[in-house]
Design a protein around this nucleic acid. Structure first.
Lengths: 135, 135
DNA sequence: GCATAAATGCGAACTGGTCGCAATCGCAAA
DNA sequence: TTTGCGATTGCGACCAGTTCGCATTTATGC
C-alpha cells in the first residue's frame, strides 16, 4: 500500500483521498470487482467520488502495473491487484466462473510461442465453456 | 443456404428478405464481420433494413446454431457461419489478429476437462498477448 | 385469398465507459 | 508555512454497441 503510493509519487502522481480509498478496497478485496462495485465501496469511505474518477484511477494504477483488468464474459470488466490476476473459465449455461491456475496454460503457451511466435496472456479474457454440472 | 432457410421454417421462422440477404452475405464473407459491417452489406441489397433487425436476425440464427459470434478484444462482436468459427489471438500492442487452429487447444481442452470437468469453447473470446513482431 | 403469428422499422433506452472543462487540491520548493 | 503549478476531481454530456416496446407489415399454412 505505502509502496504503491510511493510508486505513484515517483511517477509524478499524487496520493489523493479517492486513490487511497480505491487502493485500500483493492487490498481488502478477495476477488475481482467491477468498476461499479469499486465505486460504491469507495463512496462509502469518501462520498462524492464520481465514477469517472474511479475509472481514471483504475487506468492510472493499471498503467503503473498495480492493477489488472479482466473481461469476464459479457458484462463489465473486473479489476484485481496484478499479483492476484489469474485466468477464468465461465460456464455459458449457468454463468458459474472458475479460477484457472496458470499451470494449465503452460502447454498452450509454449506451443503457441513455438508455432506462431505469439506470447499469450490468458488472464485478460475469460474462456467460455460448459461446466461439469451443466454438461 | 436453402438448408438454412428450411431449418428456419422448421422452427416456425420465416424466410424474409432481410434474413435472406444476411445469410447471403455471411455465406459470401470470408472472415468475421461486425454487426455494423453486416448491416451495411445487407442494406446495399435491401435498403431500409434497420440495425435492430440485423441484430435480431443474428440472434435467431445463432440460436439455430447457424452463426456464431466472437468477441475480438475491445470493440464490437464479430459473426461467422458456425462451421468456420475458430479461435483468435490478438496482439495487445499492435492489435494484429491471428487465427488459431483448434489443434492448438487440444491439450488445454483435455487437461481442463480432466481436472475440472469443464469443457472449453476457445472460440468465443479472443486471447490477448504479444505477437512476434512486437516482442 | 385470408387469418395470424412472425418479423420489421422506428426511435427511445440502456450499459459500460470516455471526455472536456472549470474548480480544487497535493506537494515541493522557497 | 505559504505559494505556485500541475495533477486530479466532479460534473454532465457524450459515445459505442446493443436491446426493447410498439404499431405496422408480411410470409405462410390453410
Amino acid at each position: 500500500m505505502d509502496q504503491v503510493l510511493a510508486l505513484v509519487r515517483e511517477q509524478g502522481g499524487r496520493a489523493t483521498a479517492s486513490r487511497r480509498a480505491l487502493l485500500e478496497i483493492l487490498f481488502d478485496a478477495d476477488g475481482h470487482m467491477s468498476a461499479e462495485d469499486l465505486a460504491t465501496a469507495v463512496q462509502s469511505r469518501v462520498p462524492e467520488v464520481h465514477m469517472s474518477t474511479v475509472y481514471r484511477n483504475l487506468d492510472d494504477l493499471e498503467e503503473l502495473g498495480v492493477v489488472t483488468h479482466t473481461h469476464m464474459g459479457h458484462g463489465p470488466s473486473t479489476y484485481v491487484l496484478s499479483p492476484y490476476a489469474h485466468a477464468h473459465f465461465i460456464c455459458k449455461q449457468c454463468g458459474a466462473t472458475f479460477e484457472a491456475p496458470d499451470a494449465l496454460f503452460a502447454g498452450l503457451s509454449r506451443s503457441v510461442r513455438a508455432k506462431m511466435g505469439f506470447t499469450i496472456d490468458p488472464h485478460h479474457f475469460a474462456i467460455l465453456g460448459t461446466c461439469a454440472a451443466c454438461s
